[in-house]
Nucleic acid binder design. Structure first.
Ligand SMILES: Nc1ncnc2c1ncn2[C@@H]1O[C@H](COP(=O)(O)OP(=O)(O)OP(=O)(O)O)[C@@H](O)[C@H]1O
Length: 728
DNA sequence: AGGCCCGTATGGCCC
DNA sequence: ATACGGGCCT
């Protein structure tokens, strides 16, 4: 029997409750995840078969950790649990039931980039100019509609308000048609198709409804409409469902998460029992008080009590910095001090930020200062071009209808199949209503392609056929290795031998060893399974709390995690809260929740830092410190910066330029020829001051330039006469 | 077909 | 700063 001794009485009640639907609402660090873990172990103990339990987590990483924990509690039978993210578990069901769908078992999973590329191709095909309609906005919109379960037809009938909407409806419709022809699903489809499947096919619906005797959901506050619908469809008559969440930690509304799921739960399951956990085991009293003082600025929230027996702890440290480099050096210094004074390990620290772009400077400084670190997120490994290209080969080998992948590799490595050829083949495919892959077979019928090129296409098709055949016989690892060999990719990057191409080479080799490892660990695995894991993998899987390095990640990625010491960096207006002119009150509240999530990751100590100036889009921007810093109750925060993390503050752009003119050589246009001047050149004029060249007009003696000087001052000057000095 | 250069945009969080 | 797409030249 699983011992519930390590739970408090309320946690225990929640674990032991087996009467029907239950909702656990509780604040950060109150042991929600722990309750879920024990509850699953407890249910198995009580007689529920592991394979009859459906447990949904927010990330794959959370799932595998929970599974490990349950294995420790009840042994290896835990491996039969249906535990994972919504996306991965329903993808699994879709593959099993693909026979009942208009998809075959080997369907591809399109990530955001693939979707965008499909949107672009669709728009091109429909002659919708990307000038009038931004493809990425369209992709967003389509995904939003899908997340809210709005079909093209419904959208057309009820929601269109503009000419652009009409175009979007057209693209949406065509997109759905194409993705189906490609035998592919995007992330949203992984949730929508099961709903469709269950609706159309009551037998299959009943099968799963019967199969899953108990459903448990972690991070319920961030589920979307489709996920809610799926739960409702699958829950059995006794309503054996347990969801846990914290409305104050809802931070994914931008991808369709809908808090009303949580607010309406008690209405939809009218026998639902609600449990509240009020004791926080994670953080110090100070951290709780500080984070609470921030979150209470949000109007709408479920009121919750949260207290802790933990120590008072240290005050939140406020780090004031001159710029982002200074910030990185301050953080470095504090990490070194903490390690020196309190014998902490590198893995005790997490540096969090609002946007991935902010990791760059931290990375540079940590490298220089010899602080070992791991960046989670950013340009993820499987999103790198060279890696995606190779994965695209595997996807085509698994699913020849996957046109987005086929287009990616058609001319990689270069084999003389250019844009024009691809356009002609695509046109042929559409005309004859066949796939692009089949068109390659019949390329000799595409008469507007030159014979030499036709041969290239045919050669490529033969190569693919060979690997499609081999894919049954070779392991995923062997297949990839031999493919990379034959394509000469390694040689290609070696020969180019630029810094970038060598980095690419590294990535290809890393991919190869990752695939080989995967093959060894899962000897009988199908290419499909591997590809699915890759599509749904996240960088978070790399996180290893036992490894001696500082962890860098976005606050979003840090959800559900905990670290002894947490830095919340870049706390400046416009960055955290991130905002733009479209920002709303609601998005401000979500930013605040995000900040709350960041602070509450800490067990012992939180630092918040802000920089007076920071590079953004190649320009220095000055920003006030975040309102969230000011919302932290003053008796829980103290400044820890006396002096600067490093010497030299950033000077304003103006200062830099003036200094430059005083100290550095410049070209005087009255003497030198004008060949140095070009659009974008920075220039100095005695009377007008600093400026930037917008246009160079004419040549020779009459050559003129148009310059934007400071203060929105536009001038046209004759180069011959104007006393212009130029900066290189 | 492919390479190069220029202009322009750059809203970010993730399964 | 940087990356990407479009247009132009070879
Ligand atoms: N009864 C308990 N006794 C001791 N430690 C506990 C207890 N309950 C939870 N903890 C510890 O408190 C910490 C937070 O627990 P957990 O991650 O389950 O909280 P949570 O509510 O899911 O947090 P969050 O919502 O912030 O992600 C963990 O380190 C966990 O081990």
């Amino acid at each position: 029997m699983v011992s519930l001794k390590s739970l408090n009485s309320e946690q225990k009640k929640a674990v032991e409750y087996d009467g029907g639907a239950s909702l656990i609402v509780a604040g950060a660090g109150s042991g929600k995840t722990r309750v879920l873990t024990y509850k699953i172990a407890y249910l198995i103990d009580k007689g529920y078969a592991p394979e009859s339990i459906l447990a949904l987590t927010f990330t794959n990483k959370a799932a595998s950790e929970m599974k490990e924990r349950i294995k420790e509690l009840i042994g290896t039978k835990a491996q039969y649990l249906w535990m994972g993210t919504f996306h991965s578990l329903f993808a699994k069901i879709l593959r099993i039931e693909s026979g009942a769908l208009d998809f075959s078992v080997n369907f591809s999973i399109y990530d955001t980039e693939d979707s965008l590329s499909l949107v672009q191709n669709t728009m091109a095909e429909m002659n919708i100019s990307t000038e009038t309609v931004n493809p990425n906005a369209v992709r967003h919109r389509i995904s939003f509609l899908k997340n809210h379960m709005i079909t093209p037809a419904v959208f057309r009938k009820k929601m269109m308000t503009s000419f652009i909407d009409e175009k979007i409806a057209d693209v949406y419709e065509r997109y759905q048609q194409r993705i189906q022809e490609h035998n592919a699903m995007d992330f949203d489809d992984l949730l929508l198709k099961p709903i469709e499947l269950f609706r159309k096919n009551p037998k299959i619906h009943q099968k799963y409804k019967k199969k899953f005797q108990y459903i448990l959901v972690d991070e319920f506050q961030d589920t979307n409409k489709a996920q809610y619908e799926l739960l409702k469809m699958l829950v059995n008559k006794e309503e054996k469902i347990c969801v846990v969440g914290d409305d104050a930690q809802s931070i994914y509304s931008w991808r369709g998460a809908d808090l009303t799921n949580m607010l309406n739960f008690e209405k939809d399951y009218n026998n639902a029992k609600t449990f509240r956990l009020e004791q926080n085991y994670r953080s110090t009293k100070t951290i709780l008080a500080a984070s609470d003082s921030v979150i209470k600025n949000n109007k709408d929230q479920i009121s919750k009590t949260l207290w802790t027996d933990n120590q008072e702890g240290e005050l939140v440290g406020l780090i004031k910095c001159s710029d982002e480099k200074d910030e990185a050096y301050h953080i470095t210094r504090i990490i070194k001090d903490e390690i020196h004074n309190y014998k902490r390990g590198m893995n005790d620290f997490a540096v969090l930020y609002r946007t991935n772009a902010q990791s760059r400077v931290l990375e540079d400084v940590f490298r220089r200062e010899k602080i070992p670190y791991l960046i989670i997120g950013g340009v993820e490994f499987y999103k790198r071009k060279e890696v995606k290209d190779i994965v695209a080969y595997l996807r085509v080998i698994a699913n020849q209808n996957d046109e987005e992948s086929l287009l990616r590799i058609m001319n990689f490595p270069q084999r003389g199949i250019g844009m024009t050829t691809i356009k002609r083949m695509t046109a042929f495919a559409r005309r004859h209503e066949i796939t692009l892959f089949d068109t390659m077979q019949r390329v000799f019928e595409v008469i507007d392609i030159k014979e030499r090129i036709q041969k290239n296409v045919k050669g490529f098709r033969i190569l693919l056929d060979k690997y499609i055949m081999l894919s049954d016989r070779l392991s995923v690892g062997e297949l990839t290795r031999s493919l990379i060999d034959e394509l000469g990719i390694i040689k290609l990057f070696k020969e180019e031998s630029s810094y970038e191409s060598l980095a690419r080479l590294d990535n290809v080799q890393e991919l190869l060893s990752a695939i080989t490892d995967y093959s060894t660990e899962h000897p009988n695995v199908k290419l499909n399974d591997y590809l699915q894991d890759v599509s749904l993998a996240s960088d978070l899987d790399l996180l290893d709390e036992t490894k001696q390095h500082v962890n860098l990640m976005t606050v979003h990625s840090a959800k559900g995690l905990e670290f002894p010491i947490v830095f919340v960096s870049g706390c400046e207006e416009d960055i955290f809260p991130l905002s733009n002119r479209f920002s709303t009150d609601a998005s401000m509240d979500e930013e605040r929740r995000l900040f709350y999530v960041g602070m509450t990751r800490a067990k012992e100590k939180v630092f918040v830092s802000h920089a007076r100036s920071r590079y953004r889009f190649g320009e220095v921007a000055y920003q006030n410190r975040s309102r969230f810093i000011d919302e932290i109750s003053s008796d829980t925060i103290t400044e820890v910066t006396s002096g600067s993390g490093r010497k030299a503050n950033r000077k304003s752009k103006k200062e830099i330029y003036y200094e430059y003119f005083e100290n550095v050589d410049y070209v005087d246009f009255t003497q030198d020829k004008s060949k140095h001047i070009k659009v974008g050149s920075r220039v100095m004029h005695d009377k007008f001051g600093l400026g930037k060249v917008l246009q160079v007009i004419g040549a020779g003696d009459t050559q003129k330039v148009s310059v934007a000087f400071e203060g929105n001052n536009l001038k046209q000057l004759m180069l011959k006469f104007a006393k212009l000095k130029i900066l290189n």
